[in-house]
Deep mutational scan, measured.
Amino acid sequence: GKELVLALYDYQEKSPREVTMKKGDILTLLNSTNKDWWKVEVKATANDKTYERQGFVPAAYVKKL
């Protein structure tokens, strides 16, 4: 199945390749080969529509579930 990670801290994206997350968010882990930056998929809701974004977050800010 898919691997999930838990956001340990809030993170505000600093570039278009990154994604914003809030502490407590559960994210889908896409790639953890880089030890510093993990690629995740974030589900977000805006205007009653759910959309998914993929991007990088600092590996130290998340932990595998």
Rank of each mutant, 00 (worst) to 15 (best):
D48Y: 07
R53T: 06
L6T: 07
E18L: 05
K49H: 11
Y11Q: 01
N47T: 09
K64L: 14
A60Y: 08
P16R: 09
F56Y: 15
G55S: 01
A60V: 09
T33Q: 11
M21H: 00
L29S: 01
F56G: 00
Q12T: 15
A60N: 11
R17S: 11
V19F: 09
L29V: 06
E3V: 14
E52N: 15
F56N: 04
M21V: 10
T50D: 11
V19R: 00
G1Q: 13
F56D: 03
K64I: 13
Y51S: 11
D25H: 05
V62G: 01
P16Q: 09
K63Y: 09
K2T: 11
T28K: 12
E52W: 15
E52R: 14
V57P: 00
K2G: 11
A46L: 14
V5R: 00
E52D: 14
A44N: 12
K49E: 13
K64V: 11
K23G: 05
S15L: 07
T20Y: 03
V62F: 04
K63R: 12
M21Y: 01
L27M: 13
Y11D: 00
N47F: 11
T28R: 14
L29F: 02
L8R: 05
S15G: 13
Y11A: 01
K35L: 08
K43D: 08
E41V: 13
L65G: 02
V40P: 00
F56M: 07
I26C: 06
V42F: 08
A60G: 11
W38Y: 07
T28W: 13
E3Y: 12
E18W: 03
M21N: 02
A60Q: 11
Y9G: 04
V19I: 14
L65R: 02
E41A: 14
E3T: 13
E3R: 12
L27E: 00
A59E: 03
K39T: 06
L30Q: 01
D10W: 03
K14S: 07
V40Y: 02
K43H: 14
G1F: 12
N34K: 06
Q54S: 10
P58K: 04
Q54L: 07
V5E: 00
E18A: 04
G1W: 12
T28F: 10
A7S: 05
T20Q: 04
R53A: 08
Q12D: 15
D36P: 01
F56H: 04
Y61G: 05
Y61T: 06
K43F: 13
V57S: 00
K63N: 06
V57G: 01
T20G: 07
M21W: 02
E52T: 15
L4K: 09
L65E: 04
V40F: 02
Y9Q: 12
V40K: 00
L6K: 08
G55Q: 00
E41W: 07
D10A: 06
A44Y: 15
R17Q: 09
M21D: 00
A44L: 15
S15K: 07
S32Y: 09
Q54V: 13
W37N: 02
T45H: 11
T33C: 14
F56L: 08
W38K: 02
V5D: 00
L30N: 00
M21G: 00
A44R: 12
N31R: 05
E3K: 07
A59R: 10
L65V: 12
Y51L: 11
F56K: 01
L8W: 03
K39Y: 15
K22Y: 10
V19H: 01
L30D: 01
F56Q: 03
K39F: 15
W37V: 02
K22V: 08
E3Q: 14
K23V: 07
K35F: 08
R17P: 05
E41M: 13
S32I: 06
P16N: 10
S15I: 04
I26P: 04
N31V: 07
K43G: 09
A44Q: 12
V57H: 01
A59S: 12
G1Y: 14
E18P: 03
Y9E: 07
A60S: 13
G24N: 06
L8S: 02
I26W: 05
E18I: 03
T28C: 09
K14A: 09
Y61H: 06
T33A: 12
V40D: 02
L30H: 03
W37H: 02
D25G: 04
P16M: 08
A59G: 04
A7C: 12
D10T: 05
V42E: 03
Q12F: 15
L8A: 03
D36S: 09
E13C: 11
K43E: 10
D10E: 05
N31D: 15
Q54W: 08
L27Q: 00
Y11C: 01
S32L: 04
V5Q: 01
K49I: 14
S32E: 14
